[in-house]
Nucleic acid binder design. Structure first.
Lengths: 137, 137
DNA sequence: AATCCACATTAAAATCGTTCTAAACTATTT
DNA sequence: AAATAGTTTAGAACGATTTTAATGTGGATT
């Protein structure tokens, strides 16, 4: 299947029309063989380096958030004043390198089963995420 | 031991002079019998409701961050557009109620041991935090 | 207890990430 | 082709946080 039609599917599925700008964003996000982490700023830089077309910040924000809502992207919370996103949408955990401010994936298989011996009435567990902060030895 | 001298110790230990404003902040933070979660905004509101003295935002930020550096407060990562703090500084984990946007402590004893079968050369683990997102059943 | 100075406080301005707005533009439908 | 609905854009607005620069204060020193 050609990649572009895959991008168009993702966009349509997210309630967005497949425009030139949005397809460019898809290329940057989903053409990689490996998954990666990024901030909006990283993404804008990458787009600028790959194309001479201008894509406004607002378009990037809108598109990324539409993808996040449809879970084509995962948002990751670290204590920072910036949103991090992950193109790896499978359930997994993270190292956060506190000296370089960089995220590193931890595959689900590399974390032992997590037992939560407490429950909240009327609530069910939606996700269990482990964040391992690391620092220089 | 009188609480005020305890506050003065905390402040001095954090490299801060015990001023009237800072002691007021300590009263709000450390006089509670139970620990609690707050944002800077929550804290400012609480201070305003308890005293007629004005304490500027900058002072609150400075003091909270000094306490965080000395680990008299813990910073918690959930969503990136606001910092949450916790007066419970013991190692522990959290539920995050996604419908009410509220944090709930999970005592360390209520989470089984977490095994991380991956390491990063030159780095050591600083902390392991579990965030359990919950939703209505 | 008066002096002094490094540190504190403050209101206001600056900053930074993010969201909103309103006008211009483009695709799709009639 | 006209009408409609959705898009893009630059720039303004926003909210949390940090910085600034002027003024005030704790507490060590005399």
């Amino acid at each position: 299947m050609p990649k572009t039609s895959n991008f168009i599917n993702k966009l349509r599925n997210s309630g967005l029309r497949p425009t030139k700008q949005r397809i460019k964003i898809c290329e940057v996000l989903f053409n990689e063989e490996k998954t990666f982490h990024f901030t909006i700023n990283d993404l804008v830089k990458k787009i600028k380096s790959e194309t001479s077309d201008k894509i406004s910040l607002a378009t990037v924000y809108n598109t990324v958030h539409a993808f996040r809502k449809k879970e084509y992207l995962k948002e990751i919370s670290i204590d920072s004043n910036q949103s991090y996103f992950d193109t790896n949408i499978k359930d997994h955990h993270h190292f956060f390198d506190t000296s370089k401010n960089k995220l590193i994936d931890i595959d689900n298989k590399d974390v032992g089963p997590i037992k939560i011996n407490k429950s909240i009435p009327g609530k069910k567990i939606k996700s269990v995420e482990v964040l391992v902060k690391i620092e220089d030895q």
